[in-house]
């Protein structure tokens, strides 16, 4: 009646205002929390990255020295080995997780839940404890070497601990569930009669997989890769506890800048921000790619 197309009448406007107020009140605690414990600290980090280091603390003098060093390539190596490791971890996780997720998604409803619990069980143990058990397992006189020697497969113990191999192994172990779960949730939703349809149209099992199942699980692959790649990129605990000190990862470098005297807060801040920037650019790039593919659709 008095409601015109595209406009809200008076009572509706009031209602809208009320709704707005309600949503403000409801989201306020979360907003405050994020402002004080996320936004403000980040601002501090950004400010710090433009200041001058002191032995223990900082001096409030503007300086671009940290960024100059970063962009002149001083820290290229830790960045590169971190990216390489994160990349390899992601690929390995994907290759290992896909069959597992597929198997779980295709098993009976009851078994599925049991299997999922097995995937989640490791989360119940503290990460540090799990890494330490890997140390015991991989050590020169550790479980793995004992077993291999027992069976006469090797004559002298293998030096796995404190190598990049150890870092890789533990990374894959720690981040594997983050790949399995998103993959599972996507594969589980695939209508498997589509595979029947593909085979009906002449595709054998392999072709049906590559033309139907795999394309339909792309969002899961994407989500899982992000969930693995980003934490693997900044990993500190794993690299510190099983890696060697000669090839430092970026997480370790940042920590040392704060831990070791003379401290260099600005450098640590600048390195963190650079890492953040790279990750953000990667994500935005990936998102744009995804949008582009989606646009074809609409």
């Amino acid at each position: 009646m008095n409601k015109q197309h595209g406009y809200l009448n008076l009572s509706e406007q009031k209602q809208q205002k009320k709704l707005n107020l309600q949503s403000w009140i409801l989201t306020a605690p979360a907003m405050l929390w994020l402002t004080f414990f996320f936004l403000v600290p980040y601002l501090i980090v950004i400010i710090y990255s433009f200041l001058t280091p002191d032995i223990y603390d900082i001096r409030f003098e503007f300086s671009l020295e940290s960024y100059r060093q970063i962009f002149s390539g001083t820290y290229l190596r830790p960045f590169l080995i971190s990216f390489r490791m994160a990349f390899l971890t992601t690929i390995l996780c994907l290759l290992l997780a896909y069959p597992v997720a597929y198997f779980i998604a295709r098993s009976k409803e009851k078994t599925r839940n049991t299997l999922l619990v097995f995937i989640i069980i490791p989360f119940w143990t503290n990460l540090i404890i799990r890494i330490f058990s890997w140390r015991i397992f991989l050590a020169t006189n550790g479980v793995l070497n004992d077993i291999l020697m027992q069976f006469g497969l090797i004559s002298a113990p293998l030096q796995i601990m404190r190598t990049d191999l150890a870092v890789g192994l533990v990374m894959v172990y720690v981040y594997l569930p983050y790949m399995i779960l998103p993959l599972y949730s996507v594969i589980e939703k695939i209508d498997f009669t589509l595979l029947n349809a593909a085979m009906d149209l002449g595709a054998n099992e392999v072709k049906a997989f590559f033309r139907v199942t795999l394309p339909l699980s792309v969002t899961g692959i994407f989500a899982g890769s992000i969930l693995v790649f980003i934490p693997a990129l900044g990993a500190y605990l794993i690299t510190q506890l099983v890696g060697n000190q000669k090839s430092l990862y970026i997480g370790q470098v940042i920590t040392y800048k704060i831990k070791n005297i003379p401290r260099n807060w600005p450098m640590a801040s600048a390195l963190s921000l650079t890492l953040l920037l790279i990750v953000t650019l990667l994500l935005v790039g990936a998102y744009l790619l995804w949008l582009h593919n989606k646009k074809r659709k609409f």
Binding site: D191, T193, L194, N196, A197, A198, D200, L201, V212, P215
Partner: peptide
């Protein structure tokens, strides 16, 4: 060749 009960067209 088969026409499936729910058509089973490839959504992607």
């Amino acid at each position: 060749n088969t026409i499936f009960q729910n058509y089973s067209l490839f959504p992607h």
